[in-house]
Design a protein around this nucleic acid. Structure first.
Length: 303
RNA sequence: ACCCAGAUAGUUCAGUGGUAGAACCUCUGACUCCAAAUCAGAUGGCGUGGGUUCAAUUCCUACUCUGGGUG
């Protein structure tokens, strides 16, 4: 039986080192589960592994997009599903490593089948939202899809915009598409391990990591991406990059930009932990418990 | 040393003679195709002593501390 070993955890927890250790033992390729590392040129600030650090282990889903193009969890899930089929033809074990909970969900459970969004619909919605606020869009959704309106987070623009883009594209409410997904058929078993770091230690590591990234030329990286794709491009809206863009525009002092990057990275780490904690299938290990993790994986795979 | 201003949540600040609010931080949570995105909730406070008053965080006063000015 083939095994997909997922390694999850907050940013700066030490996933990369552990994944290499595990990959070496099983001759397993690594698939990245990271929504920023998919972009070419976003290297330093996304903590992307460098080719010379890969120890010969093939890595997938890195550098698959230009920073001015959209990507999504759905597209990620479909891409990885197809990729896993190929990889499992060659390897008994594949690693899925990252911190993007939503992307893991796309692979672990998948999403209900949704219609494609018509070109221009999202842009139009975003423009309407910016011009007229959320209220009119909420009214449109309430009229078009009372079932969704009853349960949706009405303060959350992204949720309302998503529901409406489906409605406007397909002429059917998003609630129509929900809940009709058959169980995901998989040719492999899922093994999930999490890397856990005490909050205060993790925060200290984030602090150091941000400093190291800046020292390694993060700002220059932003300049280069901006030169190629513009300051407004999708990739530069990611955590850390957006603060450096604001510094570049003169909206933030350097000190404030750096402080906000650290602050927002801490908040992100917290959200990651909230996300992963709710999955009881994840087995947690301390960052220094690599040996125990390897043992546990070996035992589980033998079952 | 003297004069002035100030002292309210971890921080920056509002405010009231009937024991107080915000923002940020911190903590917790949500998440079905923008997710490193977006959103929700919770914890937490009137510098110290004395006085006036039915009642003081609020008024008076002393002290302590902070900032500014003068010397």
């Amino acid at each position: 039986m083939a095994h997909l070993i997922s390694i999850v955890g907050p940013t700066a927890a030490g996933k990369t080192a552990l994944s290499l250790k595990l990959a070496g033992g099983y001759a397993a390729p690594i698939v990245s589960a990271d929504s920023v590392q998919v972009y070419r040129g976003l290297d330093i600030g996304s903590g992307k592994i460098r080719p010379e650090e890969m120890q010969g282990v093939p890595h997938y889903l890195l550098d698959v997009r230009d920073p001015d193009t959209d990507f999504s969890a759905g597209e990620y899930g479909r891409t990885v599903d197809a990729l896993l089929e190929e990889l499992f033809a060659q390897h008994p074990v594949v690693l899925l490593v990252g911190g993007a909970g939503f992307y893991f969900q796309a692979v672990w459970e998948g999403f209900d089948e949704m219609p494609a969004i018509k070109p221009g619909v999202r842009e139009a919605l975003n423009a309407e939202w910016k011009a007229g606020g959320l209220a009119p869009l909420g009214e449109e959704l309430a009229a078009a899809d009372p079932a969704t309106w009853a349960t949706i987070d009405r303060n959350n623009p992204m949720r309302i915009l998503r529901a409406l883009e489906v409605w406007r594209s397909a002429g059917r409410p998003i609630s129509y598409y929900r809940g009709r997904r058959p169980p995901k058929l998989k040719s492999y078993t899922d093994l999930k391990v999490g890397i856990e770091v005490e909050r205060s230690i993790l925060y200290a590591r984030i602090e150091r990591r941000v400093e190291a990234m800046l020292a390694a030329g993060w700002l220059a990286e932003v300049e280069e991406v901006a030169r190629l794709h513009g300051l407004d491009c999708k990739g530069l809206q990611s955590l850390g990059y957006r603060e450096l863009v604001r510094y570049r525009r003169g909206e933030l002092t350097w000190e404030d930009a750096v402080a906000q990057i650290k602050q927002n990275t801490r908040r992100y780490a917290k959200r990651q932990m909230t996300w992963f904690r709710r999955d009881p299938a994840i087995r947690w290990f301390g960052a220094e418990d690599g040996a125990a993790l390897l043992d546990w994986v070996a035992v589980e795979m033998a079952k």
